[in-house]
Amino acid sequence: MILINPSIKLITVLIIALEISFTQSTITNILIVLIGFLYLLINNKITWNALLILLLAIIPTVGIFMSQNMYGTAAMGNILVTRLYAYITLGLTFTKTTTIQELGLSLEQNLKMPTKFVYGFMGGFNLINYVKQDIADIKQAAHFRNINLHFWSPSLYFKAILSAIRYAELLSEGMESHGFSEQAYRTHYKKIALNKSDYSKATFILLILQISIVFI
């Protein structure tokens, strides 16, 4: 269910993330975490995966606290930690309530992004499983020759990219065989609505953000 237009949602999330990068209001950050959490709760999107990500953040959290206490200031420590959790919550509010598909269609229809970017990205993204298999194959092929390839071995990337180049060729041929060409006009089956209400929702949120930063 789309409560707010995906493109507007994305831009809003990014603006918020950008603003809190440069402001130092701990309360604002905490507010973002709470509201974000609420949003996820309402949409029933508090999954185990989401909780895991929030839990994992404890590691850098403790790290930041220790580091700022020893070499920086405690106040900065609070800001950074709350900011970290704000980022994560913001990210979750987006990725847990929007599919790549919806985002892609919205970018194409609402932001008029060139289709080569939208569908090139989606096509590539849908090959994730093949790429992962490939890399496992490459590692095993190396084992058969008594070689271990690690993340610092150029050969591992080289082989993976060789395959990727081939996939990119095949996929672009495949897409063309299904009628796709860059810059061509396309009709749209599922329309992603962009209403005044989307703009007002976004403006409202950003306004609250400004108030929070300045006054609280």
Partner: peptide, 10 residues
């Protein structure tokens, strides 16, 4: 072009 973009994603 399209091929480039797919490759960059990959």
């Amino acid at each position: 072009n399209l091929k480039n973009i797919i490759l960059m994603t990959l």
